[in-house]
Design a protein around this nucleic acid. Structure first.
Lengths: 230, 230
DNA sequence: CGGCGTTTTGAGATATCTCAATGGGAGTGG
DNA sequence: CCACTCCCATTGAGATATCTCAAAACGCCG
């Protein structure tokens, strides 16, 4: 449920989520100063086929990373939350598109600079490696959800993962910060099925939905985890 | 359709540039000589939860990398073919299981040694990074297949990918080298649906099936690609 | 207040699954 | 060399989860 975790800025940056940051950043001095870009809902960070000039780190909001089939069907690969890196890869072009689901901010970093530095800096290269390993684990987890689970299991797994990923301490409430269509395209379901499943969970007393369907209270997290089948 | 691509032997054989200037290959000296392990069909290379002491490179055969849900449903994440690396990761334990689908051979490499070397060798670390990027791309591609495509599209996509991955020059024939159940668990379908879809493709004249259902001739590769929806 | 995008709900259609039976090879032992 | 068995693949028929199409309700913003 995260694109990549990487602490590129050292202790000087505050308010970041560092998950496996392990000390100061070597890249710090050499990376050109990063600019921040604001995005409105539905605005693209980049599109498939664009030159991969930059890598982005989410600062605020949610970015949906996705790919579309020729006929328009869309699979969301990942939602990127603050701290996550998007746009990493080995090619010159982006192979995925990335779009804000709500008003967001991203920090723009030079892809070339990052990779040039990594060529001589094992610490940074290893960090990139580990970040992508984490992203890979998240993608696998989604693959399992989409390949094997029923609609209700998928939605429960999504809610549990979202909670783990974004919940502030103690709070059993998650903010969806996206449309039903985004959840549907992540889970390989239709909007209607997502909606029906959510109301079924509400009827079962496992969740409560507020604020126009965007704020979800997880009343029975244990039950929810159980329904997700791990 | 591949776990990870990495030429570890040439990395050391061709000599890498080291910042410490000792002139010889770090990887070469410190990677313990690799042993080769033979596996019979269905034998495991490693299981989820095992200590991640080694990383393996497939030499012969096919290895299914998978994860099972508590209730036994299984999602195959990837088939690893000769040259592919399996077992890379950031944790001390394997999070996936790996099992030969046919008699196979794997080269065993020390995970600790590999990662220790990568800590001081940016070239190797960057290779690991790029390998995992490729694996990530393959997993995403499967995710899209499983999340968005119909049964016939999934099977076509599988056949096309298998062909790209394993076909010798000019040959329009692929060797399945696995059971229907393996294909089903990769594509998120049932054995019966895979079987029915295959015979439908045969009826349509797009493929021919020989040798007890393991050898498939792709009579109309263009059509097959088309049916896969890219 | 009106309009727009989104979500919810309903009812019927359908792709895929489930359960069950049949068939085919490959290997084994007589 | 021929049964016999086992495992796997195929085929069929009915069940069902999810999708599709359609309408109504909601919430937000100008």
């Amino acid at each position: 449920m995260f694109a990549a975790q990487l602490d590129l800025t050292s202790a000087s940056a505050t308010g970041m989520h560092h998950r496996h940051g392990d000390g100061s950043s070597v890249a710090e001095q050499r990376l050109p100063s990063a600019t921040v870009r604001r995005l409105i809902a539905k605005e693209h960070v980049f599109c498939e086929g664009d030159d991969r000039e930059q890598v982005f780190q989410v600062e605020e909001g949610v970015i949906a990373v996705y790919k579309t089939l020729p006929d328009g069907r869309r699979q969301i690969i990942d939602f990127a939350y603050p701290g996550d890196l998007i746009g990493l890869g080995v090619l010159d072009e982006h192979v995925l598109s990335a779009q804000a689901t709500v008003p967001s901010k991203v920090k723009c970093l030079s892809a070339a600079a990052l990779e040039r530095i990594a060529e001589s800096d094992a610490r940074l290269a290893l960090k990139l490696y580990k970040s992508v390993c984490h992203e890979l684990a998240a993608t696998r987890s989604l693959l399992i959800t989409v390949g094997q689970r029923s609609a209700i299991e998928r939605v429960c797994a999504f809610l549990v993962a979202l909670h783990r990923r974004t919940a502030e301490a103690e709070s059993a409430t998650v903010d969806l910060a996206m449309r039903r269509s985004d959840i549907a395209d992540l889970l390989g379901l239709t909007i209607e099925t997502v909606s029906r499943t959510l109301t079924k969970l509400r009827t079962m007393g496992v969740i409560e939905i507020a604020q126009g369907g965007t704020r979800v209270q997880l009343c029975d997290l244990a039950r929810l985890t159980d329904l997700a089948n791990e």
